[in-house]
Design a protein around this nucleic acid. Structure first.
Lengths: 151, 151
DNA sequence: GAAATATAATTGTCTTAGCAACTATTTGGG
DNA sequence: CCCAAATAGTTGCTAAGACAATTATATTTC
């Protein structure tokens, strides 16, 4: 006889964020395959595309990654000739990162794929629900950032 | 002059699922540290706790992981004496996985931590918003599963 | 202005994840 | 019944992520 209180992990935000994230990311990854770039590399490159000359710390913050991860993703982007680092005169500890022509071209060709993957997500809900989802995810992001700083 | 159409990745479900997932997971991980188990190991162990004798394929499905990842997480759980594999007579290709007393004890002690992390998430929204969030995440999970099968 | 402290980036180690290739079984069609 | 195809699991490779320790440079403070 099973009289456990069945707490279902599908009611857990942390768990469901993970499972749904992995599936959305997997879809984007499949479609990015011809361009030989991963979703995470793409998101970092896109931040560089949005603003030139950011230092790695700022890129890490905007891409939601820690600094070691950002370092290594930038290594990959640089090896592929999509981004470049130049030493900053202002502060010789840091690098200013820029996108190359090849990087810019890749972003132009693949931005529609990123948008299409999100359209696929949107395909199972109303516009209003999608807006609510995004709003809640942004709120979680900020709230968790606060909690993590205090933990 | 900057006249790019600035498509903000913070409007992208895929991107925001990733950044918020990593933060929630990081919080749970910090709190699990005394128990020497990771959030991903925890979620697999919890599925085993919920139902004894599942085969790895079923655990993978329920935990939202692929089979190689499940294999390796089970390796860790077995090494720590939290789970065990026994060969199934029905089908000699597969193992039936069970939780040990030590594993059960760990789940009992740490389930409150999992719930607390979700309470922290819930802390930045109303009950109704949390319900909506979970409902949407479950829907995304199913919808993406369908799309991935057809891709 | 020198010493202590803080900050930017990197490196090493381990876990998780995706993908492809492989082994050992089981199932199904001829 | 037997061979082809499907299935369960594992292994190897690479990327991403968490964390701690290290290096180089800046900033603060005394």
């Amino acid at each position: 006889m099973n009289n456990k209180k069945a707490y279902d992990l599908r009611r857990s935000a942390g768990f469901m964020l993970g499972t749904s994230y992995r599936k959305v990311s997997a879809l984007f990854q499949i479609r990015l395959k011809p361009f030989e770039i991963t979703p995470e590399q793409w998101s970092v490159l896109y931040q560089i595309h949005l603003e030139d000359g950011l230092i790695q710390k700022e890129i890490a913050e905007r891409a939601g990654k820690d600094r070691p991860t950002t370092t290594r993703i930038l290594d990959h982007l640089e090896q592929k000739g999509l981004a470049d680092r130049r030493t900053s005169d202002r502060d010789r500890r840091s690098f200013q990162v820029g996108i190359t022509d090849k990087g810019r071209e890749l972003i132009l060709k693949t931005l529609p794929l990123e948008m299409a993957a999100n359209e696929d997500v949107r395909g199972c809900m109303s516009e209003e629900e999608y807006d609510t989802l995004i709003r809640l995810l942004i709120r979680i992001d900020h709230h968790m950032k606060d909690i993590l700083e205090r933990e």
